[in-house]
Design a protein around this nucleic acid. Sequence first.
DNA 1: TTGACACATTCCCATATAGGAATATAATTC
DNA 2: GAATTATATTCCTATATGGGAATGTGTCAA
Lengths: 108, 108
Amino acid sequence: MPRAATTSDAFNAVAEPRRREILNYLVPQERAVGDIVGSLGLGQPSVSKHLRVLLDVGLVQVRRDGRRMLYKTNAEGIRPLHEWTGTFERYWRDQLTRIKERAEQEKK
Amino acid sequence: MPRAATTSDAFNAVAEPRRREILNYLVPQERAVGDIVGSLGLGQPSVSKHLRVLLDVGLVQVRRDGRRMLYKTNAEGIRPLHEWTGTFERYWRDQLTRIKERAEQEKK
DNA sequence: TTGACACATTCCCATATAGGAATATAATTC
DNA sequence: GAATTATATTCCTATATGGGAATGTGTCAA
């Protein structure tokens, strides 16, 4: 069985570095495809395809403006990822606590 | 060009649902490979391969115990993902705020 | 209507899987 | 040392890319 399709969920969608760049770029404000192409130094077809993936999993929203398409990051879609990773927070905090305590011990 | 190798970074590693399950399973305490196989209903070779990927990107740690290998989630490795997703938090909060405000408006 | 833009989609290809079967390796027990 | 147990690795295969080139589609201007 091959890897799951990128369109299957947000986790797969953000696994692509370029798509993460696009999300970062589109979060402050909406932008036209051409702007993204210019900013990321990627081919126009590639950008369109990445946007399609992001759109399918609900990580971006679009709106037509004349002949341009304005995309914008849908931050809500990233929330589930933040929450999943957040379930590990107490563990890395515990680890840090233990490391600190050990350091304290060694001082004495 | 295909997708980046799963071993390249944590984002790719957690894109696989089974690997996320493994991380969830291994976070409270270390476990032997056989336990994981039994719990996730996956083949032993598959589990070993997933563990290899997770180990390569630093998301788990191992320790040998006799003939068994005890794996444990390294929560610290998930932190970068939590931080990246966290940079979008203010945006989804803003969105919620706007939605609430609109709701308030409509009440009046 | 005809161009000219701005994007989206299709086609093609090299590459990276994920899982299962079979096999190899390491450590324990007899 | 041989058999056994617990994992890891290799081999094989169907499938899913991501990028570039070429092409299709929708919109605006003259």
